[in-house]
Structure formats: structure tokens, C-alpha cells
Write a protein that binds this DNA or RNA. Sequence first.
DNA 1: CACTAGTGCAA
DNA 2: TATTGCACTAGTG
Length: 488
Amino acid sequence: MTAFAPAIRLEGVEEDVMLSAYLVDPNRTNYRVPEIAREHLGIELASEIAGIDPDDARALQAADFTFQLAAVLRSKLAGLELEEVYTGIELPLVEILFEMEQIGVRVDIAQLHEAGIEIDREVGRLTGQIYGLAGQEFNINSTIQLGEVFEKLNIETGKKTKTGRVSTSFDVLEELAAKYELPKKIMEYRELSKLKSTYVDALPRLISPRTGRIHTTLNQAVAATGRLSSTNPNLQNIPIRTEMGRRIRAAFVASPGFVMMSADYSQIELRIFAHITGDPVMTQAFQSGEDVHASTARAVFGAKTPEQESEYRRVAKIVNFAIAYDIGPFGLAQRTGLSRAEARKVIDNYYQTYTGVRHYMEETPNLVRKSGLVRTIFGRIRPIPDIGNRNHNLRARAEREAINAPIQGTAADLVKIAMVRVYHRLLKEKLGARMIMQVHDELLLEVPEAEVEKTSRAVREEMESVHELTVPLVVDIGIGKNWMEAKP
DNA sequence: CACTAGTGCAA
DNA sequence: TATTGCACTAGTG
């Protein structure tokens, strides 16, 4: 037995310990053995303490502590009634995530390169225009230098960052763009340079020489709500909103003989919101297959004709989000262009229509004060330690977290369970499709061209029947030769 | 090289 | 004065 053998054996067990620690306290940020040992055993790895030779102690000690931790955490999981989440959701998912990472995603470098050349040309043109408007050359990427240029030209809103410097954020630039040319050009510059540095330049460097594909890391114990996260690269924030962004997404392509299939849950968080709050009006809207944003437009803005419905639908959609995040009249006004007084009336109207929602919003903080935590419908917990904080801002934030975590977390649970079910269904039906990404409410698969119909049916069935709620779950499926085309 | 600040991409 | 993430560049020490 060599010295590093315990460290190797540790890998599998460490996964269990890490996941247990995550479920017991999803708010923590570090799931390495030393930190977990300190937290749950009250002891430290000798190798983490200065003066002890780590080569000597680390592996054996880490293994020892890990086994001690397994017992401690098992009983903590039981005490918190988290065994079901652990064995029913997280553990079955481990091997599936591992396989997704191994398979990777195919990216067409040539398409990215082409987009990069166009971006360079446009950014060069914008740079010249910006220097001209500024009357000087400077580093456009520097918020400090850009702020100085704005001050010199008396282009300002007075808004400052938290450290007291001139803010050059999107909101500020947008406001200034109504009066000045320079901020408009900065916005165009930022959009393109962001896409270039974060995606067009970065993604090709991450293609594995061995597989020719991109292999992200899917983190199972990071997000406080139970969501997955993705790093190196983050494949959960691939652009889609702008024209150039869509071209980047289109560079994620299916392997030869395969097509991309994207299956996403329609309005999953709002449906869960209806289920959790038990609101009869929202529930009824979903049950009858209505467009819920449109029905909010009718209820809150009194939209009567189809024309009025579509006129107010955009704002109604923001209102639905605004309530679920509890952003208040100020936040709603800022995001809709309504006045604060109007926004307050809209929120009042909303609560008069959706009385079940109002009840949930009022009662959640009270319930949290009793237990110190909230749960998803599957029992996953999120501790809310700041619910009794004397600092108003921290307490208000804690209340929003308490309201939102069961919604976001239940969606995360449902998608995780769906992944396990889809995976086994594909095996059972001997389908050649492979799951390659998850983006919170969406599963991305590569599907053999000849099996699209069968796979589509299987995926939809598993996802829509993943768990019975008071409202139906609806899945939209799209097919294409790349990720952009596949978005339904 | 490690760290923070500011910004912006996604659901 | 919106939830959850990750990552880029600038700038500091």
C-alpha cells in the first residue's frame, strides 16, 4: 500500500461526505474535507496547520476524518429528515453528472472564429468613434478611466458605485444614451467585447485535444438553493439574447449523425409558485392551460381585448417575477417604467387577485422565525440565519431568500429527478441519445437522427410526469443542428 | 500571483 | 431597493 492510496480511495467517499455536508448546510461555501472536518468534527487536518509535514499526514488523516465525518453527517441528515433528498435525488445524480462531463459538448471553432473577426472589425470601428467623442484615447474597459472621461465631458447622472466612484453600469449608460452619443457607443462596445473575451476567445482554448469537445465541471454542492452550477467553462450562461449572442450559441453543434434536442420546462418556477402558495386563481389559470402572464394582464391591468392583453403582457410578466422575488414598488417601477405610485397600485391589485400568494408572502417570514429554515417540497432545506437580524437590509434580504428558495429549490429538485428518470429511460429503451447539459429548467441532449421521435416522446413523458403537482408541468422540446436552433 | 471592484452573461 | 450562479478586465499590493 503506497502512501497516496488512502487519498485515492478517498475520492468516492469524499463525494458522499461533501454531498451530506452540502445538504446539512447549503449556505456554506467550502466542501473540502478540512473545512467540513473543522465544522462538524471540531478538528483540523494536521496538514492545514503550520509546522507539520503534509506529505506525512495528509492522506491518512484526511481519510480518517472523512470516515468519521460520514457517521456524523449521516446522523445529522437523519435529524434534519434529509435522507430522501440524499439517497433519492443527489446520490443517483452523481454518476449521471460524471458521464455528462465526460461526454462533453461539441463546438464549431470555425463559426466562433468568423464571429470573432466580425466583432474585431466592429469593436475597432467603435473604438475610433469613442476616442473621437471623448476627445482622447483611454482604456475603454476601465470603469475608472471611463468615469473620468464622463466627468470631464459633464456627461453624468450623479450615480456612484458603493466605493464612491462614477458608475458606468448599463442602467446609467442607458439613461445617458437618451442625451449623449458616447454612452450609446460604450454600450455597443461593451456588448461585443464581453462576448469576444468571455466566449469567442475563451471557448476554443478549452477544447480538449483528446476529445475535441468542451468538458465543463458540473458542481453539485455550490448553489444554496440546490441548483447545479457549471465552471471552466460555465456552460449555463451561453448567450442567447442579442444577435451576436445567438451566433455564439449556434456554434454549439451536434455530432455527425446526431441532432441537438432541447427540452425545457415551461414557466416551471411560476407553476411551483402556484403549487406552493395554493393560490386558486393562479392554479386555475395553469390548469386550464391559459397564458398566465396574459391572465395577470387581465387581472391586474384590466386588459379586456386581445390587443390590450398583448399590450400589457410584457409588464405583467415582470410583475409575476416581481412578486416571486418580492422586489417592492421601487424595484418594479425601475424595471417597468411605471411610477412608484403606479407600481404600488399594481402590487395591491395583484394581491387582491392572487390572495393565496399574499397569504404565502405574509406567512413565510413568520414560519421561518420559528424554525430558522425553509424547505422545498421534497424537504431540501435552506437555513435562513438572518431572519431575525436587527439590520433591516439583511433581514429584508433574508425574507426574500426565504420566499424564493423553496421555489427555485423545488424547481432544482424536479429537474434533478427528471434527469435521473430520463437517463434510465434512455437506457431502458436502448436509445442512443445522451444528455450533455442542464441549464436549470432545460435539458440538452444529442440525439441520433433516426431516434428523434422516440427520444422526444420519452424525454417529454419523463419530465412532465416527474412529480404530480396541483398544476400541470409542461415541457417544450426543440430540435436543430445546433443549440440555437434547438431552443423551442 | 492573490485579491477586490465593477460589470455583465444565463436561468 | 431582485434570486441563483461564473468569469471577464482593471487595478492594487
